[in-house]
Amino acid sequence: MMTFLNFFISGISLGSIYAIIALGYTMVYGIAKMLNFAHGDVIMVGAYVCFYAISRFKLPPLAGVALAMIVCTILGMIIERMAYKPLRQAPSLAVLITAIGVSYFLQNTALLLWTSSPKVFPSIIGRGAFKFEFNNFLLEGQLSVSHVIVLTIVTCIIIMLCLTWFTGNTRMGKAMRACSEDKGAAQLMGINVNSTISMTFAIGSGLAAIAGVLLCSAYPTLMPTTGSLPGIKAFTAAVFGGIGSIPGALLGGLLLGVIEIFAKAYISSQLSDAVVFAVLIIVLLVKPAGLLGVQRPEKV
């Protein structure tokens, strides 16, 4: 029972990271209808910036995270401006390939700047853990929850609350929802669709920086390819929960993280990816628009 709880908590923690990354995918998809394959690499850039800020320039961790967020936000906006904006009217596959090009570009720039040798990411809040002793009839033994896990889960909750408030109550957030509903109508209502899309990219990339720092705090190896697999999995999580939906990204991310950790623990560590993707397929067969996605009726 105790090991089960431990696995469950680390699953939730991994899932929180996936959820934060998935938010970036889901927001961009919801509004621009494109799969931003470069998102995983923005995570990697964020982690590197934070790594250098902390270990080379001896900045305090919080300043490092803030710096990473600023750099990633700007990077996200530059990418959007240079690579995606000229393709607003292009077929979606063209945009997809461009996104892949951007992803290669970021990975290889990172390879040149920071070499391929893995860096050990410094812990931003130490490697300590909260320890709980249980001694009742249901639970027995020690539950240890590391600070990083607590930080990850708390950050994820805060981000979710902020985003829900942002999309529900601010002008910009409402504009975003309007654009994802119907771009043409939003434009007619006087919403600047282009700047709204840029804003979405900026927010998504800023979140990616946080995700990168959290990811590398939990799994402290940093390489130019660090972001790609979590990127794919987070994208899966976004689809899992229903792409375009913010609560869906949270739910999908958490479920994916828990399933992955349980599959690793109870089935096989080599086959955990296969199990994760198999669950995704089953979910999509039962609910083709994802768990919280809205299935829109087709008009003829």
Partner: peptide, 11 residues
């Protein structure tokens, strides 16, 4: 870069 430029150019 070639990939991105070609995609931007052809569209």
């Amino acid at each position: 870069v070639v990939l991105i430029v070609v995609m931007l150019g052809t569209n």
